[in-house]
Design a protein around this nucleic acid. Structure first.
Lengths: 206, 206
DNA sequence: GCAAATTTCCTAAAACCTTTAGGCTTCTGT
DNA sequence: ACAGAAGCCTAAAGGTTTTAGGAAATTTGC
């Protein structure tokens, strides 16, 4: 009988396809073997198991996403860079929901440190070079952007914004626009904020 | 032999505990049976299966979270309400990571419509009553807040912000503060934005 | 108070997924 | 051609899910 021609790369690639089709959670060594027309045990010559498979998809997704972001960011700065990054991020998640979910799979520290994830994080921080933010404030801003992007895309994929008044497309565009404005006019970390509304009652936090 | 005294409520409650201890993904009918010192099949008299179990945890979490939010929001408006909501949200997620993950479990539409989720969404929108936002802009703002809250908490639980320069606590506080400022000075949806920085190059979006 | 009805929990079993061990067969290089 | 390596296979054990049907404990009705 002829061989199936498996290899770690092909397997991870098919697994990524499968993830996009049926969801990252549903990616299973069994389903993958069926897809290759091969017995389950055969895959274990190329994989270290289920965790390894998921890690592989995650690394692939991080790399693809980061490459897209790098391409989109080349030659852009400030607002244009922010828009480009945001578009790439959301488009990737919508085109490849399974891979996107995989990119959030928890990697062990060494694997994560060697992954495209760090390059992706650097790119996001690079977007902020177009704005006037430094030190801790820049970090806060990076975390804000990361949270909005991930949070929005994640809620959207869960179906959170479907079938309601302004369509998700519009909200996304508007939010990114608003964030650009926020970054351009990033408020000083003055301790008594409360700049321009009715008097601030100093409420206890709990 | 004496009975274990199971009931749907007790089972869901234990399942929520288990989720917080080992993670929502790891909550399994088997593990739960072991915890009760009971055979697996015994739980099937009280549950419709695994999906039903997860749904139960999700509904419990949504209710707890919403109750906390409602309590925290009573008598507060504007900035104070935003701070309170944010604190409740993050605290709940940190105290009950498994339940929090459960609260993001995808429910079927009817179940979702009858869940505390809709009350929770109303509460978040109510927070915005303290700011001057209406119509679509209010919806965009609700989605922004939801994204930031969920995104931040989710990244934090994944370990994204640990062991790096400004601790997560500070970033959270600062981000909420910045959001308050943003909501108070929400920019007009003017079509040619680019209000106060260097001349805006009209870059194509792709 | 007790028998009947009901509920609770059990054993048994089938189906599926994961993982390891070890064997045959197909390639590859010399 | 043939020895070694690599690829895919059968076999098997262990775990989870779910259904079917039985036995014991509790509750209910008289």
């Amino acid at each position: 009988m002829p061989r199936a021609g498996l290899s770690a790369e092909r397997i991870i690639g098919e697994a990524a396809e499968l993830a996009d089709e049926v969801g990252f959670e549903q990616v299973t060594v069994s389903a993958l073997a069926r897809r290759f027309g091969v017995r389950v045990a055969s895959l274990y010559s190329h994989l270290d198991g289920s965790h390894d498979l998921r890690t592989g998809i995650a690394l692939l997704a991080l790399e693809e996403l980061t490459d897209r972001a790098a391409t989109a960011l080349a030659g852009r700065a400030g607002r244009a860079a922010l828009l480009a990054f945001a578009e790439v991020y959301r488009d990737y998640a919508r085109q490849h929901p399974g891979r996107y979910a995989a990119s959030r799979y928890r990697l062990d520290p060494e694997t994560a440190a060697a992954s495209a994830g760090v390059r992706h994080a650097r790119l996001l921080r690079a977007v902020l070079r177009g704005y006037d933010l430094t030190g801790d404030e820049q970090t806060h801003a990076v975390r804000l952007l990361g949270s909005v992007f991930h949070g929005y895309v994640s809620l959207e994929l869960e179906g959170g914004f479907s079938h309601s008044a302004p369509d998700s497309e519009r909200s996304w565009a508007r939010i990114v626009e608003v964030l650009d404005g926020l970054l351009r006019n990033w408020p000083d970390p003055s301790h008594s904020d409360a700049s321009r509304t009715e008097a601030s009652q100093p409420e206890a936090s709990q």
